[in-house]
Every structure is written in C-alpha cells, then in structure tokens.
Amino acid sequence: MPSSRTEIAGIEMQNPTILASGILGQTGESILRVFKEGGAGCAVTKSIGIEPRDGHGNPCALELDNSLINAMGLPNPGIDAFGDEIKIALKSGKPVIGSIFASTPEDFATLAGKMEDFGAHAVELNLSCPHAEKYGLEVGTDPGRVGDILAAVKSKVKIPVFSKISAMVPDIRGLAKTIEASGGDGIVAINTLKAMKIEPEIGKPVLRNVYGGLSGPAIKPVGVMCVFEISREVKIPVIGVGGITTGADAIEYFMAGASAIQIGSGVHYRGIDVFKKVNAEIIKFMEAHGYDDLSQLIGMARGV
C-alpha cells in the first residue's frame, strides 16, 4: 500500500492531515478526540495569547453557500492556563503544534517559550487572523514586522517555528522569502479570507464583529494558488490549508507544493473523522495512479 507518511521540519507524521488552528483545539480532550476518533496525523491548538480573552460576541459563525464565515475573535484561556491542555493532548503520542498570537515580537517570543516548555513539538505563529484588532493579519502584512517577530521567536526556542500567513497580503512571495531568510522553519497558507455577510431582510451585517473570516470549499482555489506561489519561492516546507474536505482537495495542495495539509471547516462538512476519510482518499488516489510515496506528488504541478 502506498505511504502517506510525511515530515515537516523534522516532525514525523503518520499521515499528512493536521487539525487546523481554531477548530476544536481549545481543550486537550477535544484534541485527543481529533486524534483518536478523527485520525489526524498532527494537531494545531487554538491560537493562544498572553492573557485570557473572551473573543467576539454572537453571532460569530454562520454557514453560507459552500463556505463558513466566523468571527470568533481569538477566544482563549491565556498561555498560563494552557499547559495542562497541551499535556492532555500529548497523551496521544502524536505531534501537537501550539498556535500563538501577539502584537509584539517580545510577546510572541514569550508565548513560544511557554509552548516549548509545555512540550509542544512546534509553534505556529498566527500572522493572519482577519478579524481581531491588533493581532493576526494586522501584524502579518508587513514583511519587516514579520521578520522581527521571527527573529525574536527563533532566538527563544529550539522547536520548529511555522508562520501561518494570509492570502490577503500585497506580496505573498516577498513575505515568504522574508520568512525563510529570518529562519522560519515552514509556512502555513492560508488563513480565512476577510469577509462579511449582510442579511437583506434585516438590513444589517449579521456578525457582531461585522467582519469575519471565510473558510470552506469556496476558498480552496485561493489556497492552492498561494501554496503554489510560495513553494516556488522558498525551500522551507509549506503546509496547505483552505477548503480541504476530500482527498482530491489535498492532492491539489500536494501538487502545488504542500508537504502536509490542514483541515478545519472540513470537520463541519464531513465530521470529526474527516482526517481519516481524507487520508484514505489520498492513499486510494496514490494507489490508482501508481504512487508509492507522498513525496512523489509534492510540487508536481510546479513544473519548475
């Protein structure tokens, strides 16, 4: 049988499906369930900040045609309360990546240090959440600022540092090059796209925060394009995310250059075991097309 094992910056994964940040990743028990029942090869926690945060008020999530829109607003218990959750998640024996958000290089470094102390296998810098003031996309658009953040984090921790970036930046190739040059160990692309929904019968935006992030099948072509562009530009591994619900979606991302993929909204579309299903579909595709190893697919469509 073909192998879908993969490796990113030294992190070995039994299969290339990763729980994306923000989905079910706020408690260790939820992450354990995503591994055990869901079959994920790796999981990223919810984004954690220095202080506890409630996030935006309701409504904060909606189902639209072929997409979801959410404005959770980075709710989290704060880094100091999160160590126990990581410890529970690590009982799985699978790699756990700690997602962190901050607005300064110093705070990013502090958070990364604590994630490393808790036992996280890597950290993922949230440089791309589109609906939280002063965080996410607001710090992740300017390559100079991203470079400063990476320099601070890299000097603090030994575990790999992944940067999750947005498609909504002026120059994604330039940003990717900066991340590589600043010592980044991998790039995760993409986050949700900034979006909103107005209810015609009411005449108002539905989300309490007005703006949210669009996810789900509708954004997949944008994600594939970004992974394609980034992986042509840099040698560090790329993790593809955005609208993946099937093995065929994942294959597109691999062919664009992703070494692994993340699934978030797919949990809604196909259930917690979406990881198991997608991995089985990847293997079935490889079998049908005569591939033995996932590495044969990665970057295939880039041409070079």
């Binding site: 923000g22 939820s30 996030g55 904060c60 999530a61 189902e63």
Partner: peptide, 14 residues
Amino acid sequence: KCGFGICGSCSIGG
C-alpha cells in the same frame, strides 16, 4: 458560539 460543532466553546470532556 458556532452551534454546529467547529469552535469547541461548548465542549465537555471533548
């Protein structure tokens, strides 16, 4: 919060 099982804010023991 979301109501459809993705945000995890209502989780109890996973």
